[in-house]
Design a protein around this nucleic acid. Structure first.
Lengths: 145, 145
DNA sequence: GTTAATTAGGATAAAAATGTCTTATTTTGT
DNA sequence: ACAAAATAAGACATTTTTATCCTAATTAAC
């Protein structure tokens, strides 16, 4: 469903959103530990998030990553997913047909199209900021115990 | 969403289901052309379908693949998907948490769990036999024009 | 029987995804 | 200034997925 890269991107962003509520930043090692991901690979994922303007980085001692206060309020999971793997998940035919549509449907189109819409809706409606709050309240979790 | 292997497996099975309506079989080359997939790789996918009892093969001149009349009526897309890639798509946490559940949810669980159920439902409800009929009526298609 | 057509299976190859390591650059703290 | 801590970037390595090729085995047609 989602690539590992995308899983890490979402988790890292949510972790940083939590930190943002306390106006804190975090470095790669801390993030990787918090989301149970490999350090070096997580660093690469964070680089991608920086390039897409989802997180910001600071070099040097006490450096790290953080989310700008102005980006946080409207940041959705959809923006993260699209930044990492494009919009294929919410647009492409589930059987890979180039021209699949209502008038030219693949065998799964009729039943899958609404599900794809649900996925888009879910990703649009999941606000990073809200999820960060739920994380703080231990209502949701970023890794297995 | 689905692997290429799984896409080919579904399309090949549907093509053979269509053939089954005429009590015909088809060889790799014919199938690959019909579903717009690479010959050699399609052969491997068909081998997997044979091993899982979804299709049957006949060697030698005029050999090929076909679906047994007794398997066709109740064959669903779910059986094909599970045979090829296991039940991860309809069971696993979308963020890869080992113990994600209602009491221990990942950040996407609440909104994703129903979608995952919808996917399971869709796959269970899509009968290969029905789709074959729709293919014959040109209501649905296995490849782009 | 011999030949041709076909699947089975194994080896190999190429591409993509995942992951690691090393060096350069930047920044802070001393 | 210097050392330490951190990200950036590129090279490299591993694993998985996707794809190809070759040989063996089997079957039908002649």
């Amino acid at each position: 469903m989602l690539s590992k890269t995308c899983e890490y991107a979402i988790k890292a962003t949510l972790y940083l959103a939590q930190k943002a509520h306390q106006s804190e930043r975090a470095n790669v090692k801390t993030i990787a530990k918090a989301i149970d991901s490999p350090d070096a690979f997580t660093a690469k994922v964070l680089q991608q998030l920086v390039k897409h303007g989802i997180v910001t980085s600071v070099k040097g001692t006490n450096g790290g990553f953080f989310i700008e206060p102005q980006t946080l309020p409207n940041l959705t999971l959809l923006q993260i997913v699209v930044a990492i793997e494009g919009d294929g998940l919410v647009k492409d035919c589930v059987l890979g047909l180039k021209n699949c549509s209502n008038v030219n449907p693949c065998p799964m189109h009729d039943k899958y199209a609404p599900i794809r819409d649900n996925i888009l809706n879910m990703l649009q409606s999941l606000l990073v900021n809200d999820l960060a709050t739920q994380l703080e309240q231990n209502m949701i979790f970023l890794k297995s115990k």
